[in-house]
């Protein structure tokens, strides 16, 4: 995975509370036997116009459809962002669309767990700071970008203001080193091999 050290990006605000994984990607968009290509289904319910079940063009007033946000790679969110069903498709859809970080007031527990393991940085900031970020980026999102520095644990608003944040140490490690959770564990492959070798001797009946 691409390591996450610093990122500068266009910020798209969806500062609503309880944006659930169903809204992030409706179940009808999850038909594929793959994690890829799900970006098309991101926020499908709000992003597209429908004729029955068929998509018929984009909804002009949805934030991601506005020209000034078309390069968005950071999202701003409200409380309990990503709550609801544990479907990891929500995170896959965000990553596939090109989102690198989400800054919200708080996150759904499972969603948060799914973010780091897929290389998506999830940052919690107090409500006032989220509002400040929204205000300072909104007038010209393409030039008023935010800078996220994971090493320092800081988000810098276009106005120059700096907000610090903390994330779980293991998540930080994985993101900084571009390790997904499998690579993170594979670092301990020696121990796994040693464990199974000696375990096979103590519990031979457990091995097929």
């Amino acid at each position: 995975m691409r390591p996450f050290t610093q990122h500068i990006g266009v910020v798209a605000p969806i500062i609503v509370d309880n944006v659930d994984t169903d809204q992030i990607i409706p179940s009808r968009e999850m038909k594929r036997v793959s994690k890829h290509g799900l970006g098309d289904g991101l926020f499908a319910g709000s992003r597209y116009n429908y004729d029955g079940m068929k998509k018929v063009g984009l909804r002009k007033n949805f934030v991601l459809n506005k020209p000034e946000y078309c390069e968005a790679s950071v999202m701003l969110g409200g409380e309990n962002w990503g709550c609801g069903s544990s479907r990891e498709h929500a995170v896959w859809a965000l990553c596939d669309y090109g989102i690198r970080a989400i800054i919200a007031k708080s996150f759904g527990r499972i969603f948060l767990r799914n973010c780091a393991r897929n290389g998506l940085l999830a940052i919690e900031l107090p409500a006032e700071q989220i509002d400040l970020l929204a205000q300072s980026t909104a007038p010209a999102p393409q030039s008023n970008r935010v800078l996220i520095d994971l090493e320092k644990g800081e988000v810098q608003a276009p106005s120059g203001e700096v907000f610090s944040f903390h994330i779980a140490e293991s998540d930080r490690n994985m993101l900084l080193n571009g390790l997904d959770h499998i690579e993170y564990t594979i670092q301990h492959e020696d121990q796994i091999a040693r464990f199974t070798e000696s375990d096979k001797k103590t519990r031979p009946w457990a091995y097929l």
Binding site: A168, N173, T185, T196
Partner: peptide
């Protein structure tokens, strides 16, 4: 327990894994 990791989690050995077509295929 294969190893206690420094982030407070444990690395746990799994004896068996069973998968089905809905999630296992992915």
């Amino acid at each position: 327990v294969v190893k206690e990791l420094d982030d407070g989690t444990s690395l746990i050995y799994l004896d068996r894994i069973f998968i089905h077509e809905r999630t296992g295929s992915i």
